[in-house]
Design a protein around this nucleic acid. Structure first.
Length: 116
DNA sequence: AACTTGACGGTCA
DNA sequence: ATGACCGCCAAGT
């Protein structure tokens, strides 16, 4: 049994703070965790997010341009998009049109992080 | 053990 | 605006 990488665990904790109807990006999470440039690792963590024991709203994490790059990792053909649309995101061609409006930056929103 | 592949993002031409 | 390159580093082959 492989223990979950502590970095992954921090990633999941941040993602769990993303409010419904808001989205963040892989890079924003990496920066917040003090690992700028390690956005790919956040992506990898999200890839494994389903193995975490607590719910991780992975659909709320997109790339820095608002593209639904993780779409393929959800079941069905359009689950990620549907989940986001249900929360108010406006999506067209795999891109969140109101991205700027609903973007949630942990660096700005989570001043106090006793949890992480 | 070497090489490739990513749910990324910044820089530079 | 678009695209190549590069740093990042865990997993898969």
């Amino acid at each position: 049994m492989t223990s979950i990488d502590p970095f992954f665990k921090r990633v999941y904790e941040v993602v769990r703070q993303v409010p419904q109807g808001r989205v963040t990006s892989y890079g924003a999470i990496a920066r917040y965790l003090g690992a700028p440039g390690a956005a790919r690792m956040v992506g990898w963590a999200m890839n494994q997010s389903h193995t975490h024991h607590e719910f991780v709203p992975a659909h709320r994490v997109v790339n820095r341009k608002g593209l639904l790059t993780g779409k393929h990792h959800f079941s069905g053909t359009n689950l990620m998009q549907e989940l986001l649309e249900n929360e108010g995101a406006v999506i067209e061609e795999n891109r969140i049109l109101n991205f700027q409006e609903i973007f949630w930056d942990p660096l700005l929103e989570l001043d106090d992080l006793n949890l992480i």
